[in-house]
Amino acid sequence: MEFLKRYRDIYGVDGDEDQERRANSVVAFPTPQPAQRSDNAAAALNLVAEAAAAVRGLEEQAAEAIARARHLADALMKKLEVADARVEHAENKLRDAEAEVSQLTAASAEANNALSMLRQRLAAREAELAAAEKRAADAEAAIQNIVDAIRTQLPLAK
């Protein structure tokens, strides 16, 4: 209180004049009544509760979305693993088939070589046979000539 007395003495302000001056120069804000304060507090608490509920709802939606995304990722990983296994199996089958084709190609080439050799041997044998047949025909002809010569030289007994 001492401060107020000195303030009045220094600046020459009286209580009534001071109130009148303040009323003319300062905007007066309404002071909330006790009932109004509790309504405002209740409204603020309601807003905070609604905001918290909205945040919880968003968190739940986010958690559900994350769970769905994880489930989809897991399903895709399983499908990818199955696809990888199929690819690996197909690659193994392809390698086996290529190896078999290579073996069959080698066997075919070997068989072609053997067939070619057999054809050459057959041609040689056919040539030998033809020569033998010619010698046999020549020999038969010679024998027939000898037989004919003997018949002409010998008298026939009648």
Rank of each mutant, 00 (worst) to 15 (best):
V101G: 04
R56P: 01
E64A: 13
A106Y: 07
E98W: 00
V48E: 15
A73P: 00
A90F: 07
A62L: 09
E100T: 06
A54G: 07
V82C: 01
R86P: 00
E64V: 06
A67E: 11
H71R: 14
A106W: 05
L72G: 01
E64T: 03
S38W: 02
R86T: 03
D96M: 05
Q61P: 01
R119N: 13
A109M: 08
E140M: 06
A54W: 08
N112S: 11
A85L: 07
K79E: 11
R125Y: 12
E81W: 02
V55L: 13
A99K: 06
A83S: 05
N145D: 14
I66A: 13
E140T: 09
K134E: 15
L122S: 13
E88M: 01
R70L: 12
E100F: 00
A139T: 11
T105G: 05
E100Q: 13
R86K: 03
E88K: 02
E128F: 04
A69D: 03
E64Y: 04
A67V: 02
Q120S: 13
A51P: 00
E59G: 06
A132R: 15
Q144I: 05
R56Y: 15
L129H: 12
A114K: 13
A123N: 11
A51F: 06
A63F: 06
A43V: 06
A67N: 09
M117C: 03
E60N: 08
D96E: 05
E91H: 01
A139L: 10
N40H: 10
E140G: 11
R125I: 09
